[in-house]
């Protein structure tokens, strides 16, 4: 960059260019959002198909989430090493999503403990009465997950003024209320819907914005 006297127009153009360059460097590609949207949708739909069509995969499809989580951690470490800037958003986005991951892990652990205690009682009830109890614990698990899915999505949507995620978070919470009253099969379909609306579509939106921005920068640089 040469040392020269700036006119007012040149000053404004320079400010504009630099702000655009900064934005381009930290623009989110939506990779994680798309990945989680796809993973949760696949898990929910495969589980739904298992129940609907009466087959069983040799492994639990939800193990896919562990693979996705490991991939995300590895990529986050890689990105962190490469990154030369810290964004203002990082101050609240990272804690919100890390906290979300911890809460999901804790919830899974608590649910497993509940099932360990619940299943013997359930089996005993079926043996004694010959029919299933009216209360089915499984039908109350999905709303808990959907409630959690909505929280970091809402924080991201509000904090970054990103409407697709804000709408996605509201849909998660609406589905959360609905799934309290629906059966497990419907719960799975609503979980898939929530993942698509809250993560997959906003992720594609971010990717498209990122690509457009990169293209416009290339044109400016020519």
């Amino acid at each position: 960059m040469e040392k020269k006297e700036l006119t007012q127009q040149q000053s404004l153009a320079l400010i504009n260019t630099m702000i655009h360059k900064a934005r381009e460097s930290y623009g989110d590609t939506g990779r994680d959002s798309i990945m989680w949207g796809v993973v949760i949708t696949i898990c929910s739909l495969v589980k739904f198909c298992e129940i609907q069509f009466g087959f069983k995969l040799p492994f639990d499809i939800y193990l896919l989430t562990i693979v996705a989580a490991i991939f995300q951690v590895v990529m986050a470490i890689k990105d962190g090493k490469k990154s030369k800037v810290k964004k203002y958003d990082d101050a609240f986005l990272s804690p919100a999503w890390i906290g979300f991951g911890v809460c999901i892990g804790l919830l899974i652990h608590i649910i497993n403990l509940l099932y360990i205690n619940y299943m013997p009682m359930y089996n005993e009830y079926v043996n004694v009465t010959g029919h299933k109890p009216a209360f089915n614990l499984g039908e109350y698990i999905t709303p808990l997950f959907l409630m959690l899915y909505g929280l970091p999505t809402f924080i991201t949507g509000m904090g970054c003024n990103f409407k697709p995620m804000l709408i996605g978070s509201i849909i998660c919470w609406l589905c959360c209320i609905i799934t309290v009253y629906t059966n497990y099969k419907a719960d799975l379909l609503l979980t898939a819907l929530s993942a698509i609306v809250a993560w997959f579509i906003p992720g594609l939106w971010m990717l498209s914005t990122y690509k457009k921005h990169k293209k416009s920068q290339e044109v400016l640089n020519v």
């Binding site: 960059m1 040469e2 040392k3 020269k4 700036l6 040149q10 000053s11 320079l14 400010i15 260019t17 630099m18 702000i19 360059k21 900064a22 934005r23 930290y26 030369k84 800037v85 810290k86 964004k87 203002y88 990082d90 101050a91």
Partner: peptide, 20 residues
């Protein structure tokens, strides 16, 4: 600020929290 490079630097830093 009315210098090309200094203005460029400040414009970049205004958009981020911290930069290398």
């Amino acid at each position: 600020l009315h210098s090309q490079l200094r203005l460029a630097v400040v414009s970049l830093l205004i958009s981020v929290k911290e930069a290398e």
